[in-house]
């Protein structure tokens, strides 16, 4: 029983990072109708940026959370304005190919700049954990989950309680009608892409204290995010949050009860099953966007 609870806990905790990356992906899809294949690479870039800053300044990676978030928001906004925007009306295929190109570009640039080695940050609490009711809760993982919860609440507040957030949701529901109501669609695209990749980068920052940093790390998180987003229904934010926790748990249970190196197999089998039986998504949240 305690191994089961332990696996569940680990699954839910890593699910926080999955939620950040996946919600970013689904937000971009909801507003722009664009599948961002470079989402995982933004997480990777966020990790490397944080690691480099933390190593240079010799302080805790979390110090740079806000700085990295703002920087990636601006990066995303500009990237959308000058590059992604050219493909906005050219169909999924073109958008996928363009973001795929960006994904390979970022990954290989990281390889050229930082090399293929696995790096990790030096933090005092890396191996610390809390012991609650027979379950070990890793401290840095709990911290990362906490960051995810706070960011999700902030996003909920933004989308539901601010004028700009409501405008963005309106664009997600119907681009043309929103434009007729005086909402500038181009601004919404830039904001959505900026926020979307900011979420991935924040996920990256929160991974640095307990995860290895290497150029290929984004590929894994990006693929997980696709699975989560399909599970939750493309464009559905609440669905993505629930899907992320679910995938975290499926992965942890497969690792515990089947085989450690097959943990992602469980995830992809879940993906194929969802495509087979409920391609519109497992969970219909539709509450947020």
């Amino acid at each position: 029983m305690s191994t089961f609870l332990q696996a569940m806990t680990n699954g839910v905790l890593i699910g926080g990072v999955y939620a950040l990356v996946a919600v970013g992906l689904t937000l971009i899809f909801g507003v722009m109708n664009t599948v961002n294949f470079a989402q995982g690479e933004f997480l990777m870039l966020g990790m490397f940026t944080t690691l480099m800053l933390a190593e240079t300044a010799r302080v805790d990676p979390y110090v740079f959370l806000v700085l990295v978030a703002v920087a990636f928001f601006v990066f995303g906004f500009l990237l959308e304005k000058y590059l992604i925007h050219r493909t906005i009306d050219r169909g999924h295929e073109t958008q996928i190919l363009l973001t795929l190109g960006l994904s390979v570009l970022f990954k290989s640039l990281a390889l050229v700049i930082w090399g293929p080695n696995f790096r990790s940050a030096v933090v005092s609490y890396r191996l610390k954990s809390l012991y609650v009711g027979g379950v070990l809760i890793s401290y840095p993982r709990l911290l990362s989950f906490g960051v995810a919860v706070v960011v999700m609440l902030a996003l909920w507040f933004f989308l539901n309680r601010t004028e700009l957030g409501r405008a963005m949701r309106a664009s997600a529901v119907n681009r043309k009608s929103a434009a007729l109501m005086g909402i500038n669609p181009d601004l919404m695209y830039g904001l959505a892409f900026g926020i979307g990749i900011m979420l991935a980068a924040v996920g990256g920052v929160s991974l640095v204290p307990f995860y290895y940093v290497f150029p290929d790390v984004g590929a894994f998180f990006g693929t997980i995010a696709f699975v989560v987003v399909v599970l939750g229904g493309l464009g559905d934010i609440l669905g993505a949050v629930v899907g992320a926790l679910l995938i975290g748990v499926v992965e942890a249970l497969t690792a515990q009860y089947v085989a450690l190196d097959l943990s992602h197999l469980g995830v992809f089998l879940a993906f194929i099953l969802v495509l087979l039986f409920r391609p519109q998504g497992l969970i219909r949240g539709k509450g947020w966007a």
Partner: peptide, 14 residues
């Protein structure tokens, strides 16, 4: 470094 050819590839793709 390795990865240089993929940099070229991705730029061509874009």
């Amino acid at each position: 470094r390795a990865g240089a050819s993929m940099v070229v590839y991705s730029i061509i793709l874009i």
